[in-house]
């Protein structure tokens, strides 16, 4: 199977109270075509830092990132912008990731127009995407504050899909949503994965969600990957102490 993302020895440190703190300590993993990889662990274990380094929103200090076989960690300017054709992100609070003064439809169209698509074409495509994420076309005319969290998250997923990326990184994308809405978003992601053979990196702390959606899971603890396997393997037969605590904490 084709490898979409390959990460080797990724490392990042921060200063915390004037002391050096290693957020991500030389981790390596890969995401295959059409695979959904889960990344779980508690707050501060380095999950989001990893996501930010992969998407180049944060510089890695050491290590290499290959996206579709190309090294991306040293790209700059136009070439750096080019990687976002292949990799897109969905964040925890969708309302914050849309321009508050811009309608949702325009937010979704922006990336396509930046890629040289005409406004008319972009609009047609935007309406298709809205349909794909099961949003009524009327929502294109609304502002982020005029829709619910779940509707806004659907729009954020539509926006991520607009450029037809090979990988989307979902950072706690369902954590802020109500359970009923979360269930709908999970169904939507499953459908998209099936229909578009999308690769996903799902960052969350909800093991039940990971078991439901992911093909493989990595457990992170204090900047290191402590366990790896299929969700069933990891949940039913955890090897590391931390993984056991994490599983016992699911009420």
């Amino acid at each position: 199977m084709q490898t979409i993302l390959e990460v080797r020895g990724l490392k990042r440190t921060f200063y915390k109270d004037k002391e050096l703190f290693t957020a991500v300590n030389g981790i390596s993993f890969e995401v295959k075509k059409g695979e959904c990889l889960g990344l779980v662990g508690e707050s501060g274990c380095g999950k989001s830092t990893t996501a930010k380094m992969i998407t180049r929103l944060l510089e890695a200090e050491e290590g290499t990132i290959y996206l579709n076989g190309k090294e991306i960690q040293n790209l700059k300017g136009r070439k750096l912008r080019g990687i976002y054709d292949d990799i897109q992100m969905v964040f925890q609070t969708p309302q914050d990731s849309f321009d508050p003064r811009c309608k949702l439809g325009d937010g979704i169209m922006e990336s396509m127009i930046n890629h040289g698509m005409t406004r008319v074409k972009a609009k047609t495509r935007m309406l298709e995407l809205m349909q794909m994420v099961e949003l009524d076309s009327g929502f294109a005319e609304r502002y982020p504050h005029q829709v619910s969290g779940g509707q806004c998250q659907r729009a954020a997923i539509a926006r991520a899909l607009a450029v037809e990326p090979s990988l989307i990184v979902l950072d706690e994308a369902t954590s802020a949503l109500d359970v009923t809405v979360q269930a709908q978003i999970v169904e939507l992601l499953k459908k998209l994965q099936r229909e578009m053979n999308l690769s996903m990196l799902l960052i969350c702390h909800d093991l039940a969600l990971v078991q439901n959606l992911c093909d493989r899971v990595l457990v992170m603890y204090q900047g290191n990957i402590v366990e790896e396997g299929t969700p069933d393997e990891v949940i039913q037969n955890p090897k590391e102490e931390y993984t056991k605590i994490l599983i016992d904490s699911v009420l």
């Binding site: 359970v179 009923t180 979360q182 269930a183 999970v186 909800d206 093991l207 039940a208 969600l209 078991q211 439901n212 069933d232 949940i235 039913q236 037969n237 599983i247 699911v250």
Partner: peptide, 10 residues
Amino acid sequence: IGSVLRINRG
């Protein structure tokens, strides 16, 4: 209740 994702501990 149907929306609650359950963990399958095997």
